[in-house]
Design a binder for these strands. Structure first.
Length: 427
DNA sequence: TCTGGGGTCCTAGGACCC
DNA sequence: TCTGGGGTCCTAGGACCC
């Protein structure tokens, strides 16, 4: 915690990021309403500003939005993460040039440390220049919120979106301006205050962000948690949340998907679990870690009220940590067979890895045969290289050859920036 | 018919130990 | 007759985020 602080943060986030990425390569859609769908084309996860204006809600299931989509000719895209990740990297690279101390908070947001910048330049001017540069170089428009704490920077960024007169850049360093904004913001719009906490705060008469800022931090701590206490401090300009410059290594890796249709055959679900195991193992090796705990879960749809439900999960602790796909497949196969029950329509399954170790940092169990398979590292790195090369894929037989359960992606855009064949053509 | 995926942090409560 | 209390570790579940 910085007691006497002169910190300054900027939060830069990309407007309607996924929808903007899709529009970038389709100038014909420039003023058209566009939405981007979640995996399996299930829900709406991003909306262009035209789609928002038509009342399309975030998180709405596609089938519920169908009528509006047809009526207003809204254009739908399946999510294309290769494209979004690539454009995100471009935006982040530009931000880093301007403010080297930055934390990439999510695919479309970054916190920048602007401490000291005010001695060289007015912060509002800095923000406007930053925005102009990203807009011009990438075609992605961003909003910028500047404040002494991360939580206030989030609110400044919200205000930049909400009030067009700001030109999408808001400097909230001044305490009087902070108070004025806080009084206009509902407490549910504060970062870290979700649905549950909003209800409980309202019951105590705390309705606006200013009410929360004026609450007694100690009382908040005892009635809620240290997390919300920090939020109160942050709203008062006392910085408690520091910039995380290096991404902390992951604590767990999850690979799970809803299926394109309900699965009733054991062999199909087995193949799906094998596929997720393989993907999780790839992620694990990318993190350069070994894992010791493996968890498998399967379940039916929680939304289907007129059929029987089943959900279950099992984990196991391995004798020795591993990153070898073959070891993990052995384990998830056994767990899966113990989980499987006939007679259900399965909607989703997944694999979770946890309890990570660095290579060489783990003392192998003396009394067990050394778990490491011969040539494990060499084999796995060859597999990873081939699969990354784009020249083809090799996979383990247990995944099945041509899975029918694969994701539904009926509205996928081309890989504009990551595959030569898909580059847009200019005539 | 059709409802995402992948994370983090905190807390309460039980097990266990001395 | 009367049977402690404090500390640590682990796990499940809740709440939040994008």
């Amino acid at each position: 915690m910085n007691g006497a602080n002169n910190t300054a943060f900027a939060l830069v986030d990309c407007n309607n990021f996924y929808a903007s990425c899709e529009k970038l390569f389709r100038p014909d859609l420039k003023h058209m309403p566009v939405v981007v769908l979640s995996n399996n084309d299930g829900c709406i996860v991003a909306r262009s500003k035209e789609a928002k204006a038509l009342g399309v809600k975030m998180g709405m299931p596609l089938f519920q939005a169908q009528a509006a989509i047809r009526q207003h000719s809204i254009v739908c895209f399946s999510s294309n993460y290769a494209l979004y990740a690539d454009l995100s990297n471009r935006v982040m690279a530009i931000l880093e040039e301007e403010a080297p101390r930055l934390e990439v908070y999510s695919i479309d947001e970054a916190f920048l440390d602007l401490t000291g910048v005010e001695y060289a330049m007015d912060l509002l001017t800095f923000g406007k220049r930053l925005k102009a540069k990203v807009d011009k170089w990438t075609g992605i428009t961003v909003g910028v919120g500047i404040a002494p704490t991360k939580t206030l920077a989030k609110l400044a960024n919200e205000a930049a979106k909400r009030y067009p007169a700001t030109g999408s850049v808001v400097d909230l360093m001044n305490p009087d301006r902070q108070k004025r904004l806080l009084s206009l913001v509902d407490v549910s719009d504060v970062w870290g205050v979700g649905r549950r906490i909003t209800e409980r705060l309202r019951a105590r008469g705390i309705r606006t962000a200013l009410d929360l800022a004026n609450a007694n931090p100690r009382a908040i701590r005892s009635e809620f948690s240290v997390v919300l206490e920090r939020t109160v401090q942050e709203l008062n300009g006392v910085s408690c949340l520091n910039l995380e410059l290096v991404r902390p290594t992951k604590q767990q890796i999850i690979c799970s998907r809803s299926f394109g249709y309900r699965i009733t055959e054991k062999q199909e679900l087995r193949e799906a679990i094998a596929k997720y195991t393989t993907r999780a193992a790839e992620k694990l090796r990318k993190e350069k870690r070994l894992c010791r705990v493996v968890n498998v879960f399967i379940r039916t749809s929680p939304h289907a009220h007129d059929e029987k439900h089943y959900r279950n999960a099992l984990s196991v602790e391995l004798p020795n940590p591993t990153d070898d796909t073959r070891d993990l497949l052995d384990v998830t196969e056994v767990l899966f067979c113990r989980l499987w029950r006939d007679g259900f329509r399965y909607m989703k399954g997944g694999v979770m890895l946890a309890d990570f170790y660095e290579h060489g940092a783990y003392q192998h169990d003396f009394f067990r045969a050394d778990g490491m398979k011969a040539n494990s590292q060499a084999l796995m790195s060859v597999v990873d290289q081939i699969n990354r090369s784009g020249q083809g894929n090799i996979f383990f037989a247990s995944q099945g050859v041509s899975p029918q359960w694969a994701m539904k992606r009926e509205h996928l855009s081309p890989a504009y920036t990551t595959q030569w064949e898909a580059l847009p053509k200019v005539w």
